[in-house]
């Protein structure tokens, strides 16, 4: 039996299992962070938010997801069919593959690669393709202009993120995320590197267009780069948002999973760190996701 698990088939099965063990909780977390965010937004605007499907509307995210997946996919005429469908797939895939190198505990990681931090950076710099291809393939000027705006924004903040990463690398002396975490055994890098952490936080938010959503300010450029994709049903793959006229759905169309990945990346670099090694009984993940959730919700609308 042991030989089976070391053969090609066994290793493949183990890898798939590991991937599922990461992806499924991530997606569930995405669903409920979405729910959480919508509830908080609703309360801040004296509304009830989702409250119909399931108790307290708890099943709403799944209902939304199901609905979006089952909707008919309409490709606009003149759109570049393959790219139009591929763009959201690219975005969603990138949001998930970034999780492969996130360490959940000492040695608990899907792929413990030496250049983990570079991998994360590479993945996040690829995110721009989903945006720009979606805009271009829609064959609509508004979508294209919106895509150019947000692509320019993403690329520029990517630079700042890269430079902040360099400071962390210098302090940790390694590109391996596990070792970066370990290097913060005594003091979180957020303490000595506080200015950098602030820059990183701001750049991360801007990179993901969180606080100011100028990538799709509707009154100016229609739905922005998403105006076609989201009207025509490919959106389930790209977004949790359904109806553009719903007030709590006016904000950004980024998949939460990607934002969550960004938040966790921040956490792993600057905070998440010492925590799991110092307080071993405290598993890291909840702590990190909490930090991540704070990121998501601290953002003014």
């Amino acid at each position: 039996m042991a030989s089976f698990w070391q053969g090609y088939a066994g290793v493949t099965l183990i890898t798939i299992g590991e991937a599922l063990a990461v992806i499924v909780p991530v997606l569930i977390a995405v669903a409920y962070l979405t729910y959480f965010e919508r509830k908080v937004l609703a309360f801040s605007q004296l509304r009830k938010g989702p409250n119909v499907v399931g108790p307290f509307g708890l099943l709403q995210p799944f209902a939304d997801g199901l609905k979006l997946l089952l909707k008919e996919t309409v490709v606009p005429s003149g759109a570049n069919r393959l790219v139009f469908i591929a763009a959201p797939v690219v975005t969603f895939t990138l949001a998930l593959v970034a999780w492969a190198v996130i360490p959940f505990d000492a040695g608990v990681v899907v792929a413990n690669i030496n250049v983990g931090i570079l991998y994360l950076f590479a993945i996040s710099s690829l995110g721009v393709y989903g945006i720009i291809l979606a805009g271009w393939a829609s064959n609509s000027r508004y979508a294209f202009l919106g895509a150019l705006r947000s692509a320019a924004q993403m690329v520029s903040y990517e630079v700042a993120i890269g430079f902040v990463l360099v400071t962390v690398l210098l302090c940790a002396g390694s590109l391996n995320l596990g070792r970066i975490v370990e290097a913060q055994r005594h003091v979180w890098f957020v303490v000595p590197l506080l200015p950098m952490a602030v820059i990183f936080f701001i750049s991360g938010l801007r990179n993901q267009s969180r606080p100011v959503r100028h990538r799709r300010r509707r009154e100016r450029i229609g739905g922005g780069l998403f105006c076609r994709i989201f009207r025509h049903g490919v959106r389930p793959l790209l977004s949790r948002r359904i109806r553009q006229h719903d007030p709590d759905q006016r904000d950004d169309q980024r998949p939460v999973s990607r934002r969550l990945a960004g938040a966790v990346r921040r956490a792993a670099l600057h905070l998440g760190a010492g925590m799991d090694l110092v307080f071993r009984q405290d598993r890291v993940l909840p702590v990190r996701v909490f930090v991540g959730a704070r990121d998501l919700s601290a953002v003014p609308l």
């Binding site: 690669i113 030496n114 250049v115 570079l118 590479a122 710099s125 690829l126 692509a151 590109l175």
Partner: peptide, 22 residues
């Protein structure tokens, strides 16, 4: 050569090819 691989993706795919696309 994992470092070169990542740098290739970051520099060429993440930056240069984006400019090309633009």
């Amino acid at each position: 050569a994992e470092f070169l691989a990542m740098i290739l993706v970051i520099v060429y795919v993440g930056a240069v090819a984006v400019l090309f696309l633009f």
